[in-house]
Simulated assay, not measured.
Amino acid sequence: MTKKADTIALEDWLFDRIQNRRSTTVVGEFGATEVTLTDKPVKSVTVAQAKKIGYLGRVDFISVSTEKIVRAYEIKVSMSDFKSKAIKSWVGHFNYLVTTDALAQNHKTEILDALPHGIGWLTPAGFIKKPLKRDPLIDVDWLIWLMMKSNAVAVAKHRSEGVNIK
């Protein structure tokens, strides 16, 4: 399935956001898109098998700081996307719904009413709702490994397509 332009724009915005939080003396925070989540190592298996052994869905974007604070972001660009039955992977210390500004303006009350307790809501214009800190659902070191795996897959894909990676 091809990503919508709005989804790619929000991913780019999240990468820029974590990049801008870095200082000149601290590396700061790193991110990855489309991180497949498991609570234990998995090799190539069917979806049914994966669910039995700890498949927890896929998070749209995860960042981790050098202090090992994990932020998980679910990107939604339409109300049908928001209302879908797809797993929403709130696995971080801080968890965010990320939407376009237009979606937020047009459906603010409806989305706030449906947003789970403790989940923040962020748009390029800023916070609509701040998240509450909680213990992550998956071991942080394992999440970092899953992020590295996701980024390695992305690099391999781009290289196979002849795209130079900066």
Results as ranks from 00 to 15, higher is better:
Met1Ala: 13
Ala5Pro: 11
Asp6Pro: 06
Leu10Asp: 06
Leu14Pro: 06
Phe15Tyr: 15
Phe15Glu: 09
Arg17Cys: 05
Arg17Tyr: 14
Ile18Ser: 01
Ile18Asp: 04
Arg21His: 04
Ser23Asn: 01
Thr24Asn: 11
Thr25Ala: 05
Thr25Cys: 00
Val26Leu: 10
Val27Lys: 03
Gly28Tyr: 01
Glu29Gly: 03
Glu29Arg: 10
Thr33Ile: 10
Thr38Cys: 12
Lys40Ala: 15
Pro41Arg: 12
Val42His: 12
Lys43Asp: 12
Lys43Ser: 14
Ser44Leu: 10
Ser44Asp: 13
Thr46Arg: 13
Ala48Trp: 10
Ala48Gly: 04
Lys51Gln: 12
Lys52Arg: 14
Gly54His: 09
Gly54Met: 05
Tyr55His: 13
Tyr55Asp: 02
Leu56Phe: 00
Arg58Met: 09
Arg58Glu: 11
Val59Phe: 00
Phe61Ile: 08
Phe61Asp: 08
Phe61Cys: 05
Ser63Ile: 02
Ser65Leu: 06
Thr66Phe: 04
Ile69Tyr: 03
Arg71Asn: 13
Ala72Thr: 13
Met79His: 05
Asp81Arg: 03
Lys83Gly: 00
Ser84Ile: 00
Lys85Glu: 14
Ile87Tyr: 11
Trp90Phe: 04
Val91Gln: 08
His93Arg: 03
Phe94Cys: 02
Asn95Lys: 05
Asn95Trp: 02
Leu97Arg: 06
Thr99Pro: 03
Thr100Tyr: 07
Asp101Arg: 03
Ala104Ser: 15
Asn106Gly: 00
Asn106Met: 05
Thr109His: 08
Leu115His: 07
Pro116Leu: 03
Gly118Lys: 09
Gly118His: 05
Gly118Ala: 12
Ile119Thr: 09
Gly120Val: 08
Gly120Tyr: 09
Trp121Asn: 02
Phe127Val: 01
Lys129Ser: 09
Asp135Gly: 00
Leu137Ala: 13
Asp139Ser: 13
Asp139Glu: 15
Val140Ser: 10
Asp141Tyr: 06
Trp142Phe: 15
Trp142Leu: 14
Leu143Phe: 05
Trp145Asn: 07
Trp145His: 13
Trp145Ala: 10
Lys149Trp: 04
Ala154Ser: 14
Ala154Thr: 12
Ser160Lys: 14
Val163Ile: 15
Asn164His: 07
Ile165Asp: 09
